[in-house]
């Protein structure tokens, strides 16, 4: 029996280890090694920090990196602020069939590909688009209005695409808050604002953290939305990675960029977990 259990363990460990080692660990080590080499001749490479130095010396790279980070944080906060009241409504205000219908409606945009969603925003926002035409017919604008190809359009696209990943964990945590606890808060003399601050938000914290982590990750790593909705000036860091790899074929620099993106996202995710005292297993699992 004991031997059988050991055999079972080995059999189940094998696929897991193969997956993690071959597709996650070795590729990332390779990525790091490639980012640490400098081309000195045909097929000849030296170990060096040259690619990372290039990153810090070229303002365009550094500025794009910081801009991507700041805009992703901003998009995450915006998604939380817009999504929280809706999640609260679904979890606490709506009852029965309305509740499950509203929850299902939130999931619908997730079932269609991100490309389709972005395409929808392009049709709405562009010069010949719906909103521009609407504004003209109401008389608020004299000519066609171009709302595409700027940072605001990127923001709209990012918030839209990430909304589901914020609302679902929020609804799940808020649903577990008993009505009696909220009532007790009011009985003890609290008002709407203090109940929200002292009871509802602390209770929703795990949902807020896991939602924010996922949304932040999705914004930071997004390629489609900034490329399609953003203009020439609104460059996203993933676009730099893509152009180094596919267009310029400078894998060394592209690998360094990729590694920096990975470090940035890990640091922010780790910081968010530490700040709120959560762990990865609890928020993701």
């Amino acid at each position: 029996m004991h031997r059988e259990a050991k055999l079972g363990l080995i059999l189940l460990l094998t696929p897991l280890l193969l997956w993690l080692v071959l597709l996650i660990f070795i590729p990332h080590i390779d990525l790091f090694l490639v980012s640490m080499r400098e081309r000195v001749g045909v097929g000849q490479y030296d170990l060096s920090f040259a690619n990372y130095l290039t990153f810090f010396q070229e303002p365009l790279y550094l500025v794009t990196f910081l801009r991507t980070a700041v805009m992703s944080i901003f998009a995450t906060i915006l998604t939380l602020l817009i999504g929280f009241p809706v999640a609260y409504y679904i979890a606490k205000m709506a009852k029965g069939r309305t509740q499950s219908a509203l929850f299902l409606l939130c999931l619908v945009p997730f079932w269609v590909s991100e490309l389709v969603r972005t395409f929808g925003w392009m049709i709405l926002l562009r010069e010949t688009g719906i909103i521009s035409n609407l504004l003209q017919s109401v008389g608020l604008a004299n000519g066609p209005v171009e709302m595409l190809y700027n940072d605001a359009a990127i923001m709209v696209g990012l918030v839209y695409t990430s909304m589901l990943f914020m609302v679902v964990p929020l609804v799940t945590t808020l649903e577990s808050l008993p009505d009696e606890v909220v009532e007790a808060g009011y009985d003890l003399g609290g008002n709407g604002l203090s109940v929200l601050r002292e009871i509802i938000i602390p209770h929703a914290m795990p949902g807020i953290v896991s939602g924010s982590i996922v949304v932040f990750m999705l914004c930071l790593g997004n390629y489609l939305t900034p490329t399609m909705l953003g203009g020439k000036e609104s460059l996203w860091f993933t676009e730099l990675i893509y152009s180094q790899f596919i267009v310029r074929f400078n894998w060394e620099l592209g690998a360094a960029f990729g590694f920096l993106l990975l470090i940035l996202s890990s640091v922010i995710v780790w910081g968010m977990l530490r700040l709120t005292g959560q762990s990865l297993e609890k928020t993701m699992g």
Partner: peptide, 22 residues
Amino acid sequence: YVFMLLPLVIPGIVLGISILVA
């Protein structure tokens, strides 16, 4: 278990280039 969760917090584009490089 934490390692198993890691792919969820790696940006998709980084997963792509790392596998491409390897």
